[in-house]
């Protein structure tokens, strides 16, 4: 089963140009986030140049803002914020979702009913409004934003995990292990979990995109720390100059679209690779 899945994944990677493109773009983004600030620019994001609101040129590829700061530099610094928030929120949401989904699916009964009601409650909540409310009440800060996004996103992976574990707990290999007297918790964490996780990975990848979008939205409304570079914040400051300095909004907007699209493409392609009923995977 695992080998079938990994070969299916390899097959999906080879046959899907979108997945290759998405993964290549993710690598570029990761590279930009890790090394960009030190490689591309030797000045901080707030370094002021001579010309203000300069259009894109050889000196400033994406132009400069109202204080003469390079838009490219700020976007490159913003990659780091978006990726940190996206990856950390997705990892936290996935961990929480996997643990809760596994417990819910394996033990069933009241535990399952309780966890299912919680996931349903979180799923009907208006994510952005709730996130904005919590940030407004608890204060800004990257960790808080990550935590809030994770809390709002975990039910997605929990539901997938629950379904996987429910399917696997009645499989013959689990019965064979029970007949050997192996403890239930060992069966769940050591035997079922590694087999049940692969379909949760695409969900986690989609959460990265959602988290980046949510962080940008919160930043756009000034609900993140002003000391941290963010694409959402660039959009806010650029909107008042939109009619005569389009580069202040277009480039950060494009950065958001491309990044979210990248992770969604990867997530979708992985989803199709893991789901034999979805097309040609």
């Amino acid at each position: 089963m695992a080998a079938e899945k990994s070969s299916r994944l390899l097959q999906a990677f080879k046959s899907r140009k979108i997945l290759q493109f998405g993964l290549a773009l993710s690598c570029v983004l990761l590279f930009a986030g890790i090394f960009g600030p030190s490689l591309l620019v030797d000045r901080g994001p707030n370094q002021i140049s001579q010309s203000i609101l300069a259009p894109p040129s050889a000196d400033a590829l994406f132009g400069t803002d109202e204080l003469g700061r390079s838009v490219l530099t700020q976007i490159v610094y913003g990659v780091r914020t978006s990726l940190v928030v996206g990856l950390a929120a997705a990892a936290t949401a996935m961990t929480l979702g996997v643990v809760m989904g596994a417990i819910s699916g394996y033990f069933g009964g009241r535990v399952d009913t309780f966890v299912s009601r919680i996931t349903e409650t979180f799923q009907v909540m208006p994510t952005f409004v709730l996130a904005a409310l919590v940030v407004a009440m608890a204060g800004t800060g990257m960790l808080k934003v990550i935590f809030i996004i994770a809390i709002l996103a975990w039910p997605q992976s929990a539901r997938v995990m629950r379904a996987q574990v429910m399917k696997m707990k009645s499989m013959e290999f689990v019965d064979a292990l029970r007949c050997l007297g192996i403890a239930e918790h060992k069966i769940l964490w050591r035997e079922i979990l590694p087999n049940a996780i692969p379909p949760v990975i695409p969900v986690g990848t989609l959460v990265i995109g959602q988290a980046i979008l949510l962080e940008a939205s919160l930043a756009f409304f000034g609900l993140t720390s002003p000391e941290v570079a963010s694409w959402g914040r660039l959009l806010t400051s650029g909107q008042q100059y939109f009619y005569f300095a389009w580069w202040l909004t277009v480039f950060p907007g494009l950065a958001i679209v491309i990044t979210v699209l990248t992770f969604n493409l990867v997530g979708d392609a992985l989803n199709q690779a893991f789901n034999p009923r979805s097309g040609d995977a």
């Binding site: 089963m1 695992a2 080998a3 499989m171 013959e172 290999f173 064979a176 292990l177 035997e191 087999n195």
Partner: peptide, 8 residues
Amino acid sequence: SSATFNPR
């Protein structure tokens, strides 16, 4: 026999 062992 294909479902009776942990594939990993």
